[in-house]
Structure formats: structure tokens, C-alpha cells
Amino acid sequence: MSTPTTRPTADAAREAVQAAVRHVVPDADFDYVDDDTPLRGEFELDSLDFLGFAETLASRTGVPIAEADYPRLATMATCVAFLTGARDGT
């Protein structure tokens, strides 16, 4: 996977994740969603929703998302780590 010239900050990544979820679930409420909650389960995203989510996320952040990266978009924490270029768990 190629590395984009600029990676979003953690805050920007977080914002992009929320926007991307709201793109498919317009009334998504993140108030009670902690960073380790699986997004697909929480927001009942099916595979098509997830595709829309990934698409929006990639276009908002400029970070290319390969199919092999999908598992790294599981929770807010893993999404932010992936988008900012941090290794999982850091």
C-alpha cells in the first residue's frame, strides 16, 4: 500500500470516522460509543454499508484503503491508528 503524503491527525481521523459512519447511518450517535466498540455491530453496518463507510473514509482522509485493510477499520481506536499511520495498539 502506498503511503499518502500527509496523514490526518488523530482528531481529524476521529472526525472522519464519525462523518463516514454518518454517511451511511445519518443519525449515528457516538456519545455512548467507546473507542473499542466494534463499529459494524454497533451501527449495524452490512457489507454494503461498510463499503460506503470505507469509501467515504478514504475520500475524506486521502488514505488509500485496500480490501486487506478492512479488518483494521473495526473500532474507532483501530481506525484512528490505521488512518494516522500508527501501528495497531500504539
Binding site: 452490512d46 457489507s47 454494503l48 463499503l51 470505507a54 469509501e55 478514504a58 484503503i65 485496500a66 480490501e67 486487506a68
Partner: peptide, 17 residues
């Protein structure tokens, strides 16, 4: 499916369904 999807923009990728 993964083979087909490789290199495709997200919008054009297949899902198992």
C-alpha cells in the same frame, strides 16, 4: 473476489453477497 478487487477503487469492489 479478492483477486478481482485488487487495485479497484473501493466503490467498484465486490462484496461476498
Amino acid at each position: 473476489m479478492r483477486e478481482q478487487n485488487a487495485g479497484l477503487p473501493i466503490a467498484e469492489r465486490l462484496v461476498p453477497a
